[in-house]
Simulated scan of single mutants.
Amino acid sequence: MSDVTLRELHSLEEFADAVRLFDDIWNPEPGKRPITVELMRALSHAGNYVAGAYRDGRIVGASVGFLGTPAGQVLHSHITGTRGGRGIGFALKLHQRAWALERDLNRITWTYDPLVRRNAHFNLAKLGARPEEYLPSFYGVMGDAINTGDESDRVLAVWRLTEPPALDAAQGVPCRPPIPPGALTGLSERDGRPVAGRTDGRTVLVAVPADIEALRHTDPATATAWRHALRDVLGGLLREGARVTGFHDKSCYVVERNA
């Protein structure tokens, strides 16, 4: 990304650029922006993470995070959005990681929609983060162009910055956990719809649809069925103490139960 400049944002003009970028990506309903210029100003002034990515003087990515608990250990990444080419999101996350390590923070957390394949692959395979908590309808029903009225189930991703998956990711080495013989299929797809299977094995594979965002527009009932199925299967496994160890073949979560 030699043509992209990453830097912290400090001026009202820079914050306004970031807000316009987020508006272009999410197209939120009036009065429901994910973040405002004023809040970005306050977060930046208080020492939190507000950064942007620029190409040819034009903003192409931005990220906002705030310090979380336990104090002195965690940065919570609230929102990150990019446009204009692949690799910008990865560069922003590495910038965020460096910012956190400079302040002796050992992990970064964020939430994402577990039904979106590309986000799951990016977070788990490319970055080495791990989902550690399932959060049903975390933001309530969301009416922006991406969520289109869907319930906002999220998982809490935890990026442990000095552990092997994150260290490998920083060197561009993706995380690809092996699938052991005898792995069970806890959730699969048949004719576009979710089909629940067995979850009582040591390793369980949990599939997500190819394009949930398109499905919300073309077949809302099926999109809702996927939401509830993943909530039951993946959410249930996490509540029982199982661990997500990766995202296989850009299509399914790999979940390991305790022995």
Rank of each mutant, 00 (worst) to 15 (best):
G85N: 13
G85Q: 07
G85E: 11
R86I: 08
G87S: 09
G89D: 13
F90P: 00
F90V: 02
A91V: 07
L92S: 01
L94Y: 10
H95N: 13
Q96T: 12
Q96K: 05
Q96P: 06
R97E: 01
R97C: 08
A98Q: 15
A100W: 10
A100H: 12
A100R: 09
L101A: 01
L101I: 14
E102W: 08
L105R: 07
R107H: 14
R107P: 02
I108E: 05
I108A: 13
I108N: 07
T111G: 01
T111S: 04
L115G: 05
L115N: 08
L115H: 13
R117I: 00
R118C: 06
R118T: 03
H121G: 12
F122E: 03
N123F: 02
N123R: 05
A125D: 11
A125F: 03
K126C: 11
G128C: 04
G128K: 05
A129G: 14
A129S: 14
R130P: 01
R130M: 14
E132R: 15
E132H: 02
E133T: 10
E133K: 15
Y134E: 01
P136V: 13
F138N: 00
Y139I: 07
Y139M: 07
G140F: 10
G140H: 04
V141G: 00
V141R: 15
M142G: 00
I146S: 08
T148G: 00
T148R: 15
G149V: 10
D150T: 02
D150A: 15
E151N: 09
E151G: 15
S152H: 04
D153V: 09
D153R: 06
D153P: 08
R154P: 07
R154T: 06
V155F: 01
A157T: 07
W159Y: 03
R160G: 03
R160D: 12
R160P: 06
L161Y: 02
L161E: 02
E163K: 04
E163S: 11
E163C: 04
P164L: 02
P165W: 01
A166T: 08
L167S: 02
L167F: 00
A169L: 04
A169E: 04
A170G: 10
Q171I: 00
Q171M: 12
V173A: 07
P174L: 04
P174D: 05
C175M: 14
C175P: 00
R176S: 12
P177H: 06
P177E: 06
P177A: 08
I179H: 05
I179D: 10
I179M: 05
P180E: 01
P181G: 13
P181C: 07
P181H: 14
P181E: 15
G182P: 13
A183G: 09
L184E: 13
G186S: 06
G186I: 03
L187A: 06
L187H: 03
S188D: 15
E189Y: 03
E189F: 01
E189T: 03
E189G: 06
A196F: 01
